[in-house]
């Protein structure tokens, strides 16, 4: 009875935070398989613009998503800090390129607000909510949307 309420109040999730265009984003740690350095990417013709190609991850073919592009953010040079976060969704893994990885943060469910266009100008479909950790804003991504929504088709 009351324990259920209590649990919900104190529910804490662990997120992996990373940077994209000077903002801090986060995805649930349980969705992440691993974080790797940017490997050599094989380009695939005729795919949507935000799919950079595929990589060989220990014998598996993994598609690489340019997360900046999918979220409509400006492109940036790859740097030493650039990482690929490999997430798994519906039994298939996808790598997402991020500017750098901040680390693991904990957040209470009560500190997450629903996405609002006032806070961010990103497509709200891709956002699960906005959290506040130590005075800075954390944009929680909706992975299932990012990985299933039809990709942006190439400009004709």
């Amino acid at each position: 009875m009351s324990t259920a309420v209590l649990e919900q109040e104190t529910q804490e999730s662990q997120l992996v935070a990373f940077h994209l265009a000077n903002e801090v984003y986060a995805v649930d740690i349980s969705a992440i398989n691993e974080i790797i350095l940017l490997p050599e990417i094989t380009h695939i013709p005729h795919t949507s613009q935000d799919i950079l190609g595929v990589i060989n991850l220990r014998g598996k073919i993994i598609p690489i998503l340019d997360l900046r592009k999918r979220l409509g953010l400006p492109s940036a040079e790859a740097s030493r800090a650039t990482r690929v976060i490999v997430v798994e969704q519906a039994e298939s893994a996808v790598g997402m390129i991020v500017d750098d990885v901040v680390g693991v943060v904990k957040i209470q469910s009560g500190e997450v607000e629903p996405p609002s266009e006032l806070i961010t100008n990103l497509d709200t479909d891709y956002i699960r909510g906005v959290g506040k950790v130590a005075d800075s804003l954390l944009i929680l991504l909706n992975l299932s949307q990012i990985l299933t929504v039809p990709a942006i088709k190439q400009a004709a």
Binding site: H46, V54, P63, A90, L147
Partner: peptide, 8 residues
């Protein structure tokens, strides 16, 4: 190539 990339 997987469903994320789809038919090319």
């Amino acid at each position: 190539l997987g469903s994320f990339i789809g038919d090319i």
